Simulated scan of single mutants.
Amino acid sequence: MMIRRAGRDDVPAVLALLDGATEWLVARGRIDQWGTAPHSTSPRRVEQITGFADDHGLWVAQTNDRVVGALAVGAAMEYVPPATEPELYVRLLVTDRASAGQNIGGTLLDHARGLAREDGVHLLRVDCFAGGDGALVRYYERQGFTRDVAFAVPRINEPDWPGQVLAQRL
């Protein structure tokens, strides 16, 4: 597997990964995290992923010229409490569900750790969906993160989206 900086040309492949992850969640009745609509049809999501690429914080994992994972790093998302020290924030982590079990997410998180160390930063944070059975929070804990602060994102005509910020000292 090779990890490389992604550009605008990679945005459709990243959106396809997000669409695949949503399909996987929907098939398991887990619609609270991302809903049911494809990310590739959301102008807001397309703009967000394109912005990650334009900011040079988007990375992709490839095997045999196929994108199997994506990582975006940069400043913390606006909906989470700010850090009290310099940090690198994982803004997106998604992997190809057909490649599950190959540690693509772990490898991308290792890449993020390396980027933080290169910048002399000793804090890596990420946030994730904290609802459902808590599986995603437990995934990040297995990756060496600890729970920091819980938060909720208000939504119109829907329950608040429950989130969890997790942190890792480097």
Rank of each mutant, 00 (worst) to 15 (best):
V68T: 04
E118T: 13
Q143N: 10
V165H: 06
L92V: 01
A98P: 05
E87V: 04
F151P: 00
H111V: 03
Y140M: 10
G163P: 03
E141D: 11
R30K: 09
Q48T: 12
T22C: 05
Y89C: 07
T63D: 13
A27E: 13
I31L: 11
S40Q: 11
T36F: 09
E78V: 13
V73Y: 00
G114K: 06
D55F: 01
P38L: 12
F52H: 11
G131R: 01
H39V: 10
Q164H: 04
D55A: 15
R4V: 08
L136A: 11
Y89L: 05
D133Y: 09
L170Y: 12
E47N: 14
L17R: 05
T41N: 11
S99G: 11
V94P: 03
G35A: 01
V137P: 01
T95Q: 02
S40I: 05
V26W: 05
L92I: 02
R28K: 12
F52E: 02
A100P: 02
V73E: 02
A53M: 04
Q102W: 08
T84G: 14
R28H: 11
Q164P: 04
D148T: 07
A112W: 07
T50V: 07
D55E: 15
A167W: 09
A167Y: 10
H122A: 14
R155K: 12
N157F: 12
P159V: 06
A83K: 04
M77N: 13
W59Q: 05
A6R: 01
Q168N: 08
L109T: 02
E47H: 13
M77K: 14
L123T: 09
Y79M: 12
T107N: 13
D32A: 10
E158H: 08
D160I: 00
A135I: 11
A112T: 08
D54T: 14
L109M: 04
W24H: 11
V126Q: 00
A37M: 11
E23A: 15
S99F: 09
E78Y: 11
G69A: 06
T84N: 13
R125G: 01
G51P: 09
R169C: 06
V165L: 02
V126G: 00
T95G: 02
A75R: 14
A72Q: 02
G29V: 09
G114W: 00
A70G: 08
R91T: 04
R28M: 10
V80M: 08
T107P: 06
G131A: 11
T41H: 13
R5W: 01
T36N: 09
G35V: 07
G134V: 12
V26I: 07
C128K: 01
D160W: 03
Q48L: 15
V46H: 08
D119Y: 09
A16Q: 14
L115W: 00
A75N: 13
Y89T: 07
Q143D: 07
D119Q: 15
L166D: 06
W161S: 04
R28F: 00
V60A: 02
T107C: 12
